[in-house]
Amino acid sequence: MLTEKSPAAVVEKPLVLVVDDEYGPRESIAFSLSAEFAVDTAGRAREALAKVNERAYAVIVLDIRMPEMDGIRTLQELRKVDPHVAVIMLTGYGTLQTAQDAILAGANQYLRKPPDIPELLEGVRRQAQGTRLRRAQAQAMKDAQEMNVALKREIQQNEPQIWQARASVELVHDLNNPLTVVIGYAGLLAEEARPLTQRDPTLAKKLLEYSGMVEKAAEYCHHLSENWRFASKQVPQFTTVDLVQIAQEVRQVIFFGNAAIELGGDARARVRGSKFELMRVFQNLFKNALEAGASRLAVTFTALGSQIEVTIADNGPGMDAEQLKRAMHGGFSSKATGTGLGLSICRHLVGTHGATFALESMPGKGTTARLVFPMAAPE
């Protein structure tokens, strides 16, 4: 049960302003309303307007006949300040015309003076409720308009990115056709090279190796484009994959030569994940390091209990603290034409596999990427 001292029991009374140039009627009406409402009074129109500029009233009880500025004119000025407040007009000289004038000027109710107190109380209650609803509707409309303006601004700001995204999707779609041609001709090249095995084994071996690398690279690009096209429509299917095998395949298709990337550590590093998303991780990390100037990458796979740790350490130029921070959030590239998105893509893809991604770097000391994956359960 709520007590008188409980904050929840305190209900703020609606605020009412009584405007009348006659002291007696003004104070009598104020007293009649004071038990149920918080009441202010004003003896002149200008005093009332000053009060309305300072406070938000629920109801204004306004006499029509006043010196300096009559009630109708006062009502018109009040509406400029507060269009939502309810106004009850009072007059001791009521005619049909004055009632019409009051309503046309924006009065919510018209009563004779002196008012019947029960009728006045009921009118103030009803009009206070109306004011509350109008203010709530106005606030909701204002919020909706502000949201609309913010949304339009957001659309305008992001429109170039939206069109860029659409263009990239179309580009990925169009890439599939030439990739199919590359895969087909790589196969034909392999077929043409096989008859040379007897006449020139060395040349045949090179041609078969090169055609195999071209075919693998094209198939990898094809899978990447398919993943891109359908990423918004389906969740990648996770299977048990071997990170060592994935790193080996990526090493063969990034065209920097096998000697630059050394794989070591545990022979198997099995995790649950999407093979081609993890290929993207290794591809971005390998290319970032080699394109930044590293001549050697040491990739180490280590089993740590129920986890697999992958470290990729390079001997490149490294980064300072500010460059490292920007690189992790997609804002730094060592190339003039680079997008700086590689590491942020890696961080996102690693996160979708329930793994962690950390980067350590110092100028002149190289950079080390550290990835920790949950180990796949034994099959």
Rank of each mutant, 00 (worst) to 15 (best):
E4M: 15
V11K: 08
V18N: 03
V19E: 02
G24I: 13
F31Q: 15
F37T: 15
A38M: 14
A45Q: 12
E47A: 12
N53K: 10
A58M: 03
V59H: 01
E68V: 12
D70I: 15
I72F: 05
T98A: 00
R112N: 11
P115D: 09
E122A: 10
V124R: 00
Q127V: 00
A128C: 10
T131F: 06
D143W: 03
E146F: 02
I155W: 11
P160G: 12
W163D: 08
D174T: 15
N176C: 09
L179G: 10
R194M: 06
R194N: 07
Q198M: 05
T202C: 08
L203E: 08
K205S: 03
E209P: 02
Y220V: 04
S225D: 12
N227C: 04
F230M: 07
S232F: 04
V235G: 03
P236S: 06
V241W: 12
Q245H: 03
Q245N: 00
G265C: 02
A269C: 09
E277W: 14
M279Y: 10
F282V: 03
F286T: 03
K287C: 05
A292C: 06
A303F: 04
S306N: 07
Q307S: 05
K325T: 09
M328I: 00
G340A: 08
L343K: 01
C346T: 11
L349P: 08
A358I: 01
G364K: 04
G366H: 05
L371V: 03
A377E: 15
